[in-house]
Computed example of a mutant assay.
Amino acid sequence: MPNNKNATEFAGVSRRTVLKAAGAGAAFAAIAGSPARLLAAEPLKVAAVYTVPVEQQWVSRIHKAANAAKDRGDIEYVYSENTSNNDYERVMREYAEAGHKLILGEVFGVEDAARAVAKDYPDVAFLMGSSFKPDEAIPNFSPFDNYIQDASYLSGIIAGAMSKSNHIGMVGGYPIPEVNRLMNAFIAGVKESAPDTKFQIAFIGSWFDPPKAKETAFAQIDGGADLLYAERFGVSDAAKERKVLAVGNVIDTQSEYPETVVASALWHFEPTLDKAIAEVKAGTFKAADYGVYSFMKNGGCSLAPLGTFEGKVPAEVMAKVAEKEKAIKDGSFTVEIDDSEPKA
């Protein structure tokens, strides 16, 4: 997602906003005659503000975790998608005014405005995707990010072994830390298997433009790449059409591309969200860096099952993957977090 130095306006093409009556829970509590006890047992009111559709990879993981918590009865959950940066602050305030006690989102393009909203609503917890660190002056605002470099590294080990030409194409949204660290970890993994691999690296300047990502991937295939790193939607479609391999990012698309997606690095937002829900309910939510809950050792990321590629990746490669995964989890090996822009 973009940071405030690379702010990108998202047009509100189709925005679904679902708001529930703010006073319903309070009215019921008053009728029951024991507000404190009832409110303690009620689901936490959670709202999310997204700048892209909930189908987009990154946001889909937050949406999935929130729905899981809703299905468990832990939270009530409403959201707005395709919210433009110009409209973001207003929507945040609407949810805060409506009585939601935890607000989720991604504020990379509206960082200052989002933190200003948090200051105005000190009794509301804000858990926001951000490139920046927590600020003790805003104790109710905690940033998170998808630190899934561990899984990206493991997917790179597989990719390096599966590329026959030692020439890999990589298509990302923007060259910012959130993307760079995953690409760099993937590259490091590739070099574990094939140190002489060449990389084509391109950024499309958008978080959700599958046609542009697809065309960029076609150009990389024409340039000699026989395996693609699909940081954006559209890349795996190009791989499927040209019959080259692809490695996925954040979500598992193996079932959709059974002949081409050989591996994927998955992001699991559940540990991040569940920690925040527990802290809010306990009254202990504070400014903290929630990025650590995306680490593999905390259950925040994993390598997807190989699916149709089970048995097609050399056994010695999967043995190395298993060895590295164990070392990551027990802390004896650490995947470097490199936020610098990767170079071809």
Rank of each mutant, 00 (worst) to 15 (best):
I148Q: 02
I148D: 02
Q149C: 08
Q149T: 07
D150I: 13
D150Q: 11
S152N: 14
S152G: 13
S152K: 12
L154M: 13
S155R: 05
S155K: 07
G156R: 00
G156S: 08
G156M: 06
G156I: 07
G156C: 09
I158Q: 00
I158C: 00
A159V: 05
A159L: 06
A159G: 07
G160E: 11
A161N: 07
A161L: 07
A161V: 08
M162H: 09
M162S: 09
S163W: 04
N166S: 10
H167D: 04
H167M: 07
I168V: 05
I168A: 00
I168M: 05
M170Q: 10
M170H: 06
V171E: 05
G172P: 03
Y174K: 05
Y174R: 06
Y174T: 02
Y174D: 00
P175Q: 12
P175T: 13
P175M: 13
I176K: 13
I176C: 11
I176E: 15
P177E: 15
P177K: 15
P177H: 14
P177S: 14
E178W: 11
N180Q: 11
N180D: 10
N180V: 08
R181E: 06
L182P: 01
M183H: 12
M183E: 10
N184V: 07
A185D: 02
I187A: 10
A188I: 14
G189C: 07
G189E: 00
V190G: 01
K191A: 11
K191Y: 06
K191H: 10
K191V: 12
K191I: 11
E192T: 14
E192S: 13
A194H: 03
A194Q: 07
A194P: 03
P195M: 13
D196N: 15
D196Y: 09
D196C: 12
T197H: 02
K198G: 09
F199E: 03
A202I: 11
F203A: 13
S206T: 10
F208N: 05
D209M: 06
P210C: 14
P210N: 14
K212V: 11
K212N: 12
A213M: 09
A213N: 06
A213Q: 05
K214S: 09
A217C: 02
F218H: 04
A219I: 04
A219E: 09
Q220L: 04
I221N: 00
I221A: 02
D222V: 08
G224S: 09
A225W: 00
A225D: 03
L227F: 01
Y229E: 01
Y229F: 10
A230E: 01
A230L: 10
E231K: 11
F233D: 11
F233S: 12
V235F: 10
S236A: 14
S236Y: 06
D237W: 10
D237V: 12
D237E: 15
A238L: 04
A238S: 08
A238M: 07
A239P: 02
K240Q: 14
E241A: 15
R242Y: 09
K243H: 15
K243S: 13
V244D: 04
L245T: 03
A246V: 07
A246L: 08
V247H: 01
